[in-house]
Design a protein around this nucleic acid. Structure first.
Lengths: 140, 140
DNA sequence: AGAATCCCTATCATTTTACTTGGAATTGAA
DNA sequence: TTCAATTCCAAGTAAAATGATAGGGATTCT
């Protein structure tokens, strides 16, 4: 029941982009250095974020990455779902296309998984990058 | 962000024991058959549940397993924590002994992980096997 | 022209997962 | 007292996931 580094590094990188929002393209190398993660690995993660439309890229020298939307319009859930796949503690409650087990009708565990999933969604879909920025500024 | 089969099979097995609570020792084989999981694999899981004091065992012929406490005194959280280890979406918010990252002081992601963890704990520590039994009877 | 940067594909070591195998020890019942 | 049912225990193992690394092509600014 842990997120992989994908989700964790990904959120850090996206928050980094939010901090530098409006400063033009941010090179991946800078993000990787600040967040202390392998830049080649982060490249793979940010590629997925780009393909899913959460970040924009500018190629060539002086290029880099930018948020594709305002920080207030990107939730933690958006990021985590792209990188970790559909959410859900069990396959039978997977967000898009649950896989039913053989005794789905009277599986009581399922209702437990549903409650867990709902509670996680409620948290991650509610927090935006802007919220994190506000927290950050309050701390500093 | 999924539970492994340990947590999932484990909860099913414990619920099965709850359904048959008071009927004396239930052989592992029966549980495995009803829940359709490998009995040898379930054996390993139930061994951990026994060592942690959630179930009792009776050896020999006509032996089997029983809940060590009343269904109302065993929560889903008790079971999942035994089988999945300490809860937490990231190492820096692990329940017992978090591992701090290098910039823990101003890591904003951490507050997100904390909120996720709290919401999961709130769910799984609140639901008991008795609650699941009540749900089950209501459905049938 | 050249440096900086994104983009893409492949490979790989390690760990985790989800079992399987094989058998020893215990105990109720015939 | 024997036998079958059962728990208990220790290894082994195939497949997948994780967390990278390696190498090079394409693009664009200076």
């Amino acid at each position: 029941m842990k997120l992989s580094t994908k989700g964790r590094y990904g959120l850090k990188a996206m928050f980094d982009l939010a901090v530098h929002d409006g400063e033009g393209p941010i090179p991946l190398k800078n993000i990787a250095e600040r967040q202390r993660v392998s830049d080649h690995y982060l490249e793979q993660l940010i590629a997925e974020l780009r393909k899913s439309g959460l970040v924009k890229s500018v190629r060539g020298a002086q290029g880099g990455y930018m948020l594709a939307h305002k920080p207030s319009e990107i939730t933690v859930g958006d990021i985590i779902r792209v990188l970790e796949g559909p959410l859900g503690p069990s396959d039978c409650v997977l967000e898009n296309g649950p896989i039913q087990c053989n005794n789905a009708d009277h599986c009581i565990a399922k209702t437990v998984w549903e409650k867990i999933q709902t509670s996680i969604s409620d948290v991650i879909d509610f927090i935006t990058l802007q919220d994190m920025l506000d927290d950050y500024k309050k701390k500093a």
